[in-house]
Design a protein around this nucleic acid. Sequence first.
DNA 1: ATCTAGATGTCCT
DNA 2: GGACATCTAGATG
Length: 203
Amino acid sequence: MARSRVPAAASPAKLGPLLSRRFFARSVHEVAPELIGATLLVAGVGGLIVEVEAYHHTDPAAHSYGGETPRNRVMFGPPGFAYVYRSYGIHWCVNFVCEAEGSASAVLIRALAPTHGLGVMRKHRGLDDERSLCSGPGKLTQALGITIAHNGAPLDIEPFAIHRRTVEPDIVTGPRIGISKAIELPWRYGLKGSRFLSKALPG
DNA sequence: ATCTAGATGTCCT
DNA sequence: GGACATCTAGATG
């Protein structure tokens, strides 16, 4: 039997104003939930942010926890820039640096609902399934073409463009994924009911 | 549906 | 050498 209600396909929601660098100059725990429902575009390709995780310098699960290294250097810089790192030797993952210079805190972008440039994303991913295009941190960077070349790039200048959300979404929280330290902290934020999450959240 | 192995950069002991 | 903010393909219930 068909479901009683089929979730609407990811429709290009009305875009809010571009987020300035200053948007990120606050606690990761304020910024992370506010990013749910915002639209991330790289060279015009991307979608609605439906899942993020917050990481802070004082957090054992954060890359910056052990101090500055060549890899995490951007995390220790000013807010409003992209921190890109290689995960498991294979994938790229993208974070937005938050708070203040030296705070070394960032929000990991984990999943998008694809809205812009579906054809480009399918080509980058070598997949057709819309649901699999951006439903994970490594998937979305591949779909959008984000690589180490974007490490340290400002988030308010092309090719990056992040549009403020225009509606207040229902947000659910839970433990972060794929970490072994501080696993109890509920610093994963998701859009309630979204079918583009990397893994289900309550609600 | 859950499980496993394998891909391998960067940091750690 | 081992762990890790992951993903895929293939095997198995």
